[in-house]
Design a protein around this nucleic acid. Structure first.
Lengths: 193, 193
DNA sequence: GGTTTAACTTTACACTATGTAAAGTTGACA
DNA sequence: TGTCAACTTTACATAGTGTAAAGTTAAACC
């Protein structure tokens, strides 16, 4: 029955999520996921024929559960361009830690797997659109600096807000999440205005 | 004889470099490297017992050949803090494309291999020191902005100049190398001053 | 009540790449 | 002539992904 199948699928996705979130150095294998979901390894392949498909599905599942689109869209409500920029940085920057574990696994496959690359690009495109909207709002206020075109400004903001940069500042530089958000907001303002 | 051994080692390092530079989606295996160097796969293991050791050795070899330290140090000659910042961004930013292929391979192993992680951290520490020197020079001129401490400013510059950001702007955003250097110089100035 | 069917288990194996092990080859040098 | 280091060749262990196929189970349907 499709209800039961759907339940099992969900259980696998939750198990994958849980293991990837805990993450650490431990690599997450198909057999680990099966064990966590209380299934045989082969049963997992019944639902997700390839590891990369499971990772992609987990990413999408996470985006659904966490309602990322809604949260990013909410930042568009701010009145001024600057407020909108701050709100977007806070929204996306606050979302990163919630998806980091799963995102990391997908990013790691990006270099060797075309499907993973496309899926990640697709998700990041949504973020770029948010950046673009923020830049346009700044421009509408006349607050956008003269150094860069709108597209270049979008690229820069998009780059600044990458998951890799979050990882670097939080993990390699030892920044707190609060400092990350605050300093990213300031940096974005300084670069763009 | 050690001279002959050294020649073979060099040949392996050159082969690794060449294949990683060409790179593309093609994964570079130990057997590919052996073939390129005109050796049996086992002979490569005679000189580099682990793949990660070979990658690390290739990175160091490259740094030697390209004299990265000298090039980064040269940026310290500039008179004003701002000129020094520009020179450092240009020096490091110009170096990235020359090491990108090899660096990418090492970065990819970082997540699963402790040795690779340490080796990459070590190389990046040298870059951080360059960032720190540039920030200090800005501060000495009284040109450093008030938003960030010297350490935070160093972290931000270091993050901005990451290989991943170069990759993102050049490959995902389609920027030219010239645009990358120019806009990074401007962005760094804007964030730090 | 018996049959069908989908979901799942169990067992087995192919494949790829790293890495280990060990016996055999070759050419320079003493 | 014999030794030694560098290298080749062959074989095998290991880990993880993915395929294949036969067997189990329980709900649904007639």
């Amino acid at each position: 029955m499709s209800r039961k199948e759907s339940d099992t699928k969900k259980r696998i996705l939750e198990a994958t999520w849980k293991l990837l979130e805990k993450g650490d150095a431990e690599r997450v294998r198909m057999s680990d996921i099966a064990k966590e979901a209380g299934l045989s390894r082969q049963a997992v392949y019944l639902h997700f024929p390839k590891r990369v498909e499971l990772l992609i599905a987990t990413t999408r599942y996470l985006d659904d559960v966490k309602a990322v689109d809604r949260r990013l869209a909410a930042s568009r409500a701010a009145s001024s361009g600057l407020e909108r920029l701050d709100a977007f940085v806070a929204a996306w920057g606050g979302y990163i830690p919630e998806i980091y574990g799963v995102a990391k696994a997908l990013i790691a496959m990006k270099d060797t797997d075309t499907e993973a690359d496309l899926a990640w690009r697709d998700r990041m495109q949504a973020v770029r659109e948010g950046c673009e909207a923020a830049v346009r709002a700044l421009n509408a206020d006349g607050a956008l600096g003269q150094d860069f075109s709108q597209e270049e400004a979008t690229d820069l903001l998009w780059t600044l807000l990458s998951v890799r940069n979050w990882e670097h500042l939080r993990h390699d530089c030892g920044w707190s999440q609060a400092r990350y958000i605050d300093h990213m907001q300031r940096s974005a303002r300084r670069v763009l205005t």
